[in-house]
Simulated scan of single mutants.
Amino acid sequence: MRKLILQVQTSVDGYMAGKDGGASWMLWNWAPEWSWDADLQQYHTDLSASVDCILLSRKMAKEGFIHHWAGMAKQTGNPQARFAGYISQAQKVVFTKTLQKSEWENTVLAKGDLKEEVNKLKQAKGKHIIAYGGAAFAGALLRSGLVDELHLVVNPVAIGQGLSVFSSLTGPLPFSLIAATGYNSGMVLLKYGKPS
């Protein structure tokens, strides 16, 4: 069965965005210059190569995620081009209740029950699946028990208050630590899996 990986950038105090949704405090967030160090860039590229399906919230898709990385994939001189190519080649599944048709290439809409739609994708043949989205979408995936691996990319900054991927949980959600890796840029990658 395919594995669902949720990758989330957070602050050291556990927020993935400010109260207003802003993320200017992140070391790197869709910027033209890739300010992560080479080892962290390689992790991100390898992770993108390991998947062939990307789950997105409607909001992230509408904010330009698909178009941005399709454009970046064409900038062959940019170190982001390689992983952006993997993103462009992967099937994108946008979860929405309001959109009537896909506005993007290689993208389908998922309009049914979140758990049913994701489990159907997990049963299909292919590489692993990765999810990107805001606090509500990522939180719903966690709350539904759909996430097989959680990759927290922790920025070396505290923001005091904001949006948390865990705020909608109704009880404890245990994980097993797979790996913890520190990087020269000050970032820390925490990989968690479901407890065995």
Rank of each mutant, 00 (worst) to 15 (best):
V51L: 04
T98G: 04
K122C: 10
A31R: 15
A31K: 11
A158G: 07
V8F: 06
A90F: 00
D39C: 07
V188T: 14
A179G: 06
S168L: 14
E63M: 11
A135R: 01
A73E: 05
I130E: 06
M187A: 09
A73R: 04
G71S: 11
L6W: 08
Q100R: 13
K122I: 09
K74G: 05
H68T: 10
K115I: 09
G85R: 03
D148H: 07
L189A: 07
A179N: 15
A84Y: 00
A73P: 01
K97D: 12
A179E: 14
K62T: 15
M26N: 02
G133T: 02
V12H: 04
S167W: 07
K74L: 14
F137E: 01
S88L: 08
A140K: 07
V8S: 03
M187D: 03
I5P: 04
Q91R: 14
D39H: 02
A81H: 07
Y183R: 06
L141Q: 02
A180T: 15
W28S: 03
F137P: 00
G64P: 01
S144I: 07
A136W: 15
R2G: 04
K62H: 12
L146E: 00
L177G: 08
L55F: 05
S168M: 13
E116V: 11
Q161V: 14
T170E: 14
G134Q: 02
Y183T: 05
R82L: 15
A180D: 08
G145Y: 05
Y86V: 08
K59C: 05
F95G: 00
D113F: 00
L121V: 02
Q42S: 15
L190P: 03
V8R: 06
A158K: 11
K97P: 00
S168R: 11
V147D: 04
G139H: 02
L142Q: 04
T45D: 11
D39L: 11
A136N: 13
D20L: 15
K120Q: 12
E105T: 11
A90S: 13
M72R: 09
K97F: 07
G71R: 06
S176M: 10
V51K: 01
R58T: 09
G171M: 09
V118P: 00
Q41W: 07
A17S: 10
T10C: 05
L190K: 03
H68C: 06
W30H: 10
G145F: 05
W30V: 01
V94S: 01
W34S: 13
T98K: 13
K62E: 13
L121E: 04
L114Y: 03
P195N: 13
